[in-house]
Write a protein that binds this DNA or RNA. Structure first.
Ligand code: FES
Ligand code: FES
Lengths: 145, 145
DNA sequence: ACAATTAAAGAGTTTTATATCTTTAATAAA
DNA sequence: TTTATTAAAGATATAAAACTCTTTAATTGT
């Protein structure tokens, strides 16, 4: 596995996909999303339920229902998605899995690793979903394998 | 989970521990290692068997047997351990799990993520186990929770 | 009211990661 | 040669992650 869990990868791709497809108060269904990002539909449904419960995305049942994101949702940093799914370890945890990453009792990787972890945090925490999405709207980036 | 799998965390801690404890052709047993790094002994045994088969560490059976590392082993980069356990995804894989991370078809995170991934690669690939170990010998870093 | 559409919820199954226990093989020392 | 010591190998066991299927509830439009 890479840096994020597969579940988290699906979640991020889905969020970008929804952001991309619902610029004007429209909604997009689970089928479209799962096809659009190459993920198992039922599994993704669970993930989106979760994000929806947490208020990271929104949904509506019934005809013309589906998932969508409000302006507020779009302004959120991507780290909210990651944290919802994978938790906070990736941002705070020790590279070697020591219970506490600390300056007091640093592991051999601590100093350099901390810098890298901070860069990752800055990237995910400092960039809104909307601004990632702009590249996507401009056709510069992709969600498709 | 953090950046690395738990198995990989144990592996790295164990490698540092062995390096630390066997400076002079001595060996250290699985019991000592697992206690020293806080890991389940039998599980760690499996991991070390694996590393041993791959030639990343060495072992000897019988009385006064145990695990040890040659000069050559100590000169290896830590990335060899990570790659043996977690594979290459962490160094090459797309943040969003796209099949191929590429400039041609970059995901929204690609540019910034690539830089971070490269820093991590540089850290693990560019530093020998021995040099991480020096801090450990100087008592500046830790393997204990 | 009714039928169609959609996500939510619930209840699984399968696969992978993590962990344990037992037996075997190699080595060293007495 | 025997015994003790150690890792290797094999066989399970448990837990978590990933995935699937079915039923329910909400909403819309007729
Ligand atoms: S203590 Fe290990 S990364 Fe900080
Ligand atoms: S394409 Fe996603 S990180 Fe390179």
């Amino acid at each position: 596995m890479g840096v994020f869990s597969r579940t988290c990868e699906y979640a991020m791709r889905a969020v970008f996909f929804i952001a991309h497809r619902t610029p004007e108060g429209t909604r997009v269904g689970i089928k479209d999303i799962s096809e659009g990002i190459d993920s198992p539909a039922h599994f993704l449904a669970k993930i989106l339920q979760d994000l929806s419960r947490r208020g990271i995305i929104h949904s509506a049942k019934g005809p013309n229902g589906g998932f969508y994101m409000t302006e507020e949702d779009l302004s959120r940093p991507l780290s909210d998605v990651v944290e919802a799914i994978d938790g906070v370890q990736i941002f705070k945890g020790c590279a070697l899995g020591l219970k506490q990453c600390s300056e007091k009792n640093p592991c051999p990787l601590h100093h350099e690793f901390k810098a890298i972890r901070n860069d990752l945090t800055k990237l995910l925490n400092g960039t809104s979903i909307k601004s990632f999405n702009e590249d996507l709207l401009n056709g510069m980036t992709s969600l498709k394998k």
